[in-house]
């Protein structure tokens, strides 16, 4: 059975320089598709990616990451759109690069489609009401 998920990896500063993805591909036979990465020497790193492979390999790969101190989080809960705080203005909709935040027309209602979000975080500060926040 195949497994395919979007995940977010948090690398503690101590391990950020290790070649994790090399191991995922070579030792666990997994497909990696990097969506977004913020990796700097000796600083905590963050990587958003899609990981796919046989379920057994997938689970082993995740175990490998966690055993090395990497935090693995489901991608979907990374960005939270707080509908109550949203003023329904629309300022975010031209900033979001993937249309995850988009305007339903002609009603002009703002909607957030989590599955399209790549956690680029551009909306956090583009939202005047600060209604979109990180959840990590």
């Amino acid at each position: 059975m195949m497994a395919k998920h979007k995940i977010v990896l948090l690398f503690p500063a101590a391990v950020v320089e290790q070649p994790f993805l090399y191991h995922l591909v070579k030792d666990y036979n997994l497909f990696v598709n990097i969506i977004r990465a913020n990796i700097n020497p000796r600083k905590e790193g963050r990587l958003v990616m899609e990981l796919a492979g046989e379920q057994e390999d997938y689970d082993a790969g995740i175990n490998f990451l966690e055993s090395r101190g990497v935090t693995v989080m489901p991608f979907e809960q990374q960005v939270k759109w707080n509908e109550d705080r949203c003023t329904q203005c629309g300022a975010c909709t031209v900033i979001c690069p993937t249309d995850a935040l988009k305007m339903i027309r002609p009603e002009m209602i703002v909607e957030f489609d989590e599955s399209k979000c790549i956690v680029c975080e551009h909306c956090f500060k583009a939202c005047p009401a600060r209604a979109i926040v990180a959840h990590y």
Partner: peptide
Amino acid sequence: LKSGKIIIQDKEVPTAPLSSYPK
């Protein structure tokens, strides 16, 4: 403006309101 795009200098430009129509 409400259609979501306008043409400026032959370029299609996406639009966004800062004032909320539904509100």
